[in-house]
Design a protein around this nucleic acid. Structure first.
Lengths: 211, 211
DNA sequence: TAGATTGTTAATCGATTAACAATC
DNA sequence: TAGATTGTTAATCGATTAACAATC
């Protein structure tokens, strides 16, 4: 398969970071090749599924040998757009916002928070990153040509902040609020909704109780 | 369908909190009945899908009328185990841990963090909640009969902390680390992995760039 | 060579969507 | 009553899993 640039299955996309993490660990241990079998075994998944997932990145392996580890890791990174850094703005510097701002792991996922914004002008810095008044967002986002926005404001400020982001030319929003946003359809929105995870977990837990 | 206690489709489980949130909003506005049509329209989903999702909670509606709002909300809560509060311990009081500890929205999801634990004994309190030394975890978790653990420690402490939780009799783990845990199979693990969301979002963003 | 692994096609499974009778 | 909505069965769609030829 030469080109699979758009509409990859979402489940596959969600699994790719898992493979990548494992590859990075193995790279540090000096491994140079990997097989779908070994990845599948370590992650408790089906080898064929792993093979299909990797195939969408365009990687080509060698029968009997597997894939070149570095080549595979780079193929995944390229496919996810993690080879070049995505610069993002963070809107909302409350507890969650600060946690995100202080998180150093984003660079491994091709993400860099270049600035944070909050309606409270008292907040000016955290973890070496500047926090600006929300009113500065439009000018800065446009000047820096930011395409990604992280929304971590209180519920009641969500709609307004999201619209502001869109007006700034932001094309993708990582939405940490539980407010359903009605944005123009060309804007990509990814929801981070803990309630969904809790629903799965607590239903299973409640079911177990009855057994 | 009278009883659907176990093995509900995960996608349905993940959608139930969305319905519940909307119901609560509408309840405040004084509405007393809802139809699948109205829920579906508001959430941009298929009405039949909504009907099937609601059916797994055991709710019964009236043709032409819809569902009693309060009855439906309670059915969802009961089905998810959110009618009684699930008490949880939080392990790891770093940036993320404190954000979780300070988050007041959990009670709406039937969750209460009763205590936090950290390897650093300097930390003693946050947002009115006590933070204890990690060595206190086993005794307290057992005494309070805690079944749910929230794991928010650094990567390198994840495996040990998770095993500690299991030894305390914890049955379900909300895993905020990106470390793959190998726990006994009866322990329920729900992964909160931002990398998965970022993969979906940044791949779509990268694809858009090419268009 | 023999056997492990890739790449691909076919079969299965489960979730979503469509169709429609029942009913308030 | 007529029409909107539920509950349920059937059809479609997409993802996972199985089967197998190609190959290093």
């Amino acid at each position: 398969m030469s080109n699979a640039s758009h509409s990859a299955p979402t489940p596959s996309l969600r699994r790719l970071p898992q493979y990548l993490r494992l590859l990075r660990t193995w790279a540090q241990q000096g491994r140079t090749t990997v097989s779908c079998t070994s990845l599948a075994e370590e992650l408790g998944q089906d080898p064929t599924q792993v093979r299909k997932d990797l195939a969408i990145t365009g990687i080509v392996g060698k029968p009997k040998v597997g894939y070149d580890l570095v080549e595979l890791a780079e193929a995944i990174e390229r496919f996810l757009g993690w080879n070049s850094t995505n610069r993002a703005v963070l809107v909302g510097a409350g507890n969650l916002g600060l946690a995100l701002l202080g998180y150093s792991g984003f660079q491994a996922y091709g993400l860099e928070i270049v600035a944070a914004f909050d309606s409270n002008p008292q907040k000016t810095e955290y973890a070496g990153k500047k926090i600006f008044s929300l009113s500065k967002l439009p000018a800065m986002a446009r000047r820096l040509k930011i395409r990604l926005g992280i929304l971590a404001v209180p519920q009641n400020a969500a709609v307004e902040a999201a619209n502001m982001m869109v007006d700034c030319g932001i094309l993708a929003v990582l939405n940490f609020t539980s407010v359903r946003l009605h944005l123009p359809e060309q804007v990509i929105v990814e929801e981070i909704d803990l309630a969904q995870n809790l629903a799965v977990l607590s239903h299973q837990l409640a079911a177990k109780k009855l057994t």
